[in-house]
Design a protein around this nucleic acid. Structure first.
Lengths: 209, 209
DNA sequence: TGTACATCAGTGAACGCGCGTTCACTGATGTAC
DNA sequence: TGTACATCAGTGAACGCGCGTTCACTGATGTAC
C-alpha cells in the first residue's frame, strides 16, 4: 500500500516509531558514521550526545539502545574513521598520498580528513579500547602505504617498515602542527609545503641510506 | 616582628588574606605554571578551574581576579609551556634533542614534556590568541634547533629552515602517535625507535640531497 | 611618623547551564499458536 | 493464513552532577593627609 511505502525507510524515523531490525542496524551505523565525522571536526569533548543524535536524525534518548556509553561509541567511531581513510587511500601511490595528505584542502577539512591525525590528541586520553583501535588504524596506514607505494616488486618503500613509520609520523605531525597555527598564518602553509617537498624528495631516494 | 614574618609569603595564602602586590603577581605566575602542566597532562577540557586553583594552592573564586576566562589562561599557559621547553633545550645539540624528544621518558611524562606536542590537539580548537601563541612556540622550536645543532658555522642544519620544519614535524608526529597507542603496545615504542633512528641518520647526511 | 580610608587578592557560597545518563512510554515488528 | 502478544528501537521529559562564572564579603595592603 502507499501508506506502507511512505512509512518505510527514512520517514519511519521521522515518525519516531519502531523500525525493522535491519533498519535499526542501519540507523546504528549512521550514528557511528556521523560520530566519526563530528569527533574529527570538534573533538571528543566538543560533541554532545544530543548534538550527535540530532545530526544523525534522531532524538538523544535512543542512544543507549545502541551504545553502552559515549566512550564506547568513540572506539567505534574511531574504527569507522580509520576504515574510511584506508578506503580513500585506495589507488593512490605513495607520492599522491603524501601530496593529498599535506594539502590545504585536507588540512581544512577535518571532518572528512584522516582520523588518525584528527583523533590523535583525544585518543591519548581515551580508553584502552579506543587506543587499541588507534594502534590498529596506524597499522592500517602503514600497510596502505606499503601496498600503494608502487607497482614494482622492488619498490623502495615496500618492506621497509621503519621508513614508512617515519613518513606517517611526519605527515601526521605536519598536519597537526599546521592545524594548530592561526588560520591565516604563513607558518601553517609553510609547514605543509616544507614537509611535503622533503618527504617526496626522500621517497625518490634509494633505501640504503 | 615574628608574627609578621610568619604571615609573610606562602602562609599568607593559607590564611586567605590579602597579599602584597608582588606576592599577588607571584601567585598569578604560579597559577599559570600549574595550568601549563595540568593542561599538558589532561588536556584543556580535562582540567577544571576548581581543580587548577586547588592544585596551585587557592580556592576557585579568585581565578577571575587574574584572568578574564579559562580560554585566556590557556593562551598564557601555552606560552609558559613553550618557554619552559626552550629553556630545557638549552645546551642540547640536535642529536641529543631528538634522542630525548623521542625517548620513552619524554613520552610518558606529558606534564613536564613538550607543550607543542601535548597541546597541538587542543590548540587547533582554541582561540586565535592561543593559536598565535602556538605558532610562536613552533617558531621557537625551529630557532632552538638551528642554534643547538652544533658549534660549527657551516653546520648542516643551520639556515636550512625547511629541513628543520621536517624534523620538528616528525618528532611531534611520532610523539603524538606513540602516546595515542595503548600503554603496553609494541607499536608505541616502535614508532619512537624508528623515527629516532631515521632522523639521526638524516641529520648526519649532507644537506644538498 | 602616625592615622583614616580606599583598594583589591583571595574566600566560599551560589548561579545557570549543558552534559551524560535514566526512565516511563509508544507502537510497529516479529513471533507463537 | 490469521490472531494475540511480547519485544524493543525510538521518544522526550527528567535526573544529578560538574562545569565556568558571579558575587557579597573579608581584611591586610597601600595611600592620602
Amino acid at each position: 500500500m502507499y501508506s506502507d511505502a511512505v512509512t518505510d525507510g527514512i520517514s519511519r524515523e521521522i515518525q519516531g516509531m519502531k523500525v525493522t531490525k535491519a533498519q535499526a542496524q542501519a540507523n546504528r551505523a549512521r550514528i557511528v558514521e556521523t560520530a566519526s565525522h563530528l569527533f574529527r571536526e570538534r573533538g571528543y569533548d566538543g560533541v554532545g550526545i544530543a548534538d550527535l543524535m540530532a545530526a544523525a536524525g534522531f532524538t538523544h534518548g535512543g542512544f543507549y539502545k545502541h551504545f553502552g556509553s559515549k566512550a564506547d561509541l568513540m572506539a567505534e567511531a574511531a574504527r569507522c574513521g580509520f576504515e574510511q581513510g584506508i578506503a580513500k587511500a585506495e589507488g593512490f601511490d605513495a607520492q599522491a598520498f603524501v601530496s593529498y595528505y599535506l594539502s590545504r584542502k585536507h588540512r581544512d577539512d577535518r571532518a572528512d580528513g584522516c582520523a588518525v591525525a584528527a583523533l590523535s590528541g583525544d585518543a591519548a586520553r581515551q580508553s584502552e579500547s579506543t587506543k587499541a583501535a588507534f594502534a590498529a588504524g596506524v597499522e592500517s596506514m602503514l600497510e596502505a602505504l606499503a601496498n600503494r607505494s608502487g607497482e614494482s616488486e622492488e619498490d623502495a618503500l615496500k618492506g621497509h617498515r621503519a621508513r614508512r613509520i617515519g613518513v606517517i609520523s611526519q605527515v601526521v605531525g605536519a598536519l597537526v602542527l599546521s592545524r594548530a597555527c592561526p588560520d591565516d598564518s604563513p607558518l601553517a602553509d609553510e609547514i605543509l609545503d616544507a614537509s611535503r617537498a622533503e618527504i617526496l624528495a626522500r621517497l625518490s631516494m634509494p633505501l640504503d641510506v
